[in-house]
Design a protein around this nucleic acid. Sequence first.
DNA 1: TCAGGGGCTGACCGATCGGTCAGAATGATC
DNA 2: GATCATTCTGACCGATCGGTCAGCCCCTGA
Lengths: 186, 186
Amino acid sequence: MARDTPQTHDEILAAAARRFAVTGYRGTSLQDIAREVGCSKATVLYHFAGKEALLAELLGKPLEVLRQLDERLAPVGGAEAQRVGAEGFVDLAVRFRREIALLRGEFPELLAQPAFAHVQQITERLIDAVSGHTGRLEDRITAMVLLAGISEACAEFVDVPEDELRPALLAVARRVLAPLDPTVNH
Amino acid sequence: MARDTPQTHDEILAAAARRFAVTGYRGTSLQDIAREVGCSKATVLYHFAGKEALLAELLGKPLEVLRQLDERLAPVGGAEAQRVGAEGFVDLAVRFRREIALLRGEFPELLAQPAFAHVQQITERLIDAVSGHTGRLEDRITAMVLLAGISEACAEFVDVPEDELRPALLAVARRVLAPLDPTVNH
DNA sequence: TCAGGGGCTGACCGATCGGTCAGAATGATC
DNA sequence: GATCATTCTGACCGATCGGTCAGCCCCTGA
């Protein structure tokens, strides 16, 4: 009957997304989610194996897109890698604003878990790409400021329409990376 | 005897700073802190009124510096406000890297408490200043990316020496804000 | 009519949380 | 040696956490 009555399942997922975005993963209890849905805590645990499973399903799509970006990033280098990495991440961050906001605050502990170990590696490669693969600390710091700033801004301006948020972020990215482009001398 | 034996008090404070920076405020228990110090949980609660009091004392200095930056920012406007705001925040973020990292993840809930209400107002004014007081959404997004990125980068590169971190952040800030300067046409 | 299964729940579990409290050490003062 | 404040601790508290489980409700199909 999964196709006839997926209501509760999806309602729980939506409620979890909302609560996690406001009070964080740790700061949200299964009771909170159940209350928002209007069901019992046991029902939440009937539809999902546990709190972690809820999180995993919530992060499934954005992490898949992140993985695709990682693949697209592998063959390119230099200024092209910077451009693809930055623009790709802007798209991803804008699209999955709520989920990004969720990963944001709980980064250290969540990524320490084996289930998310690969995310840390992908993030590392993304920073490397956006820094232009120079290996210089200054460029890594620059890339970190840009990517983290984009994440945070997306989380903060979660109610701003995509077509206002995206151009603004792309403009910042272009400004930050332009002087790093070897074809441009500032 | 506070002046003769401030050891334990300070050790607890230092341990709390370390643990909070790694596992966050909510993710750190008083037991964790006590274990790191090598004392009992009751001792932690003997020296501090509670977990919140520990946090408040930890954030005291950086919040005071933030307040000073806010005051310094009040009389100026336009490009000068952008410069003072950005450079001032870089200084603050580099200096109080651990504490910034702490406030980062727990923002929504902690700032919701009355004790930190004014921080949210100051942050708002800081974003306004760094955006050049234009009131345009795009400029606010830009400022948000820059300030949040600086915070996150400081938290991430907590072990990088100040004299490497600061110039890199200032360079990014200059690059992000330069095109907003009305005297420069790109 | 009734057996069966999916959806759901209240009651309960062990663990851990922040916090309290009476009292054991310790050392300075008289 | 007696007194007293400071420092520290083990034992304990109520609350809440994530998670389990037996069983109730209700729809379906034979």
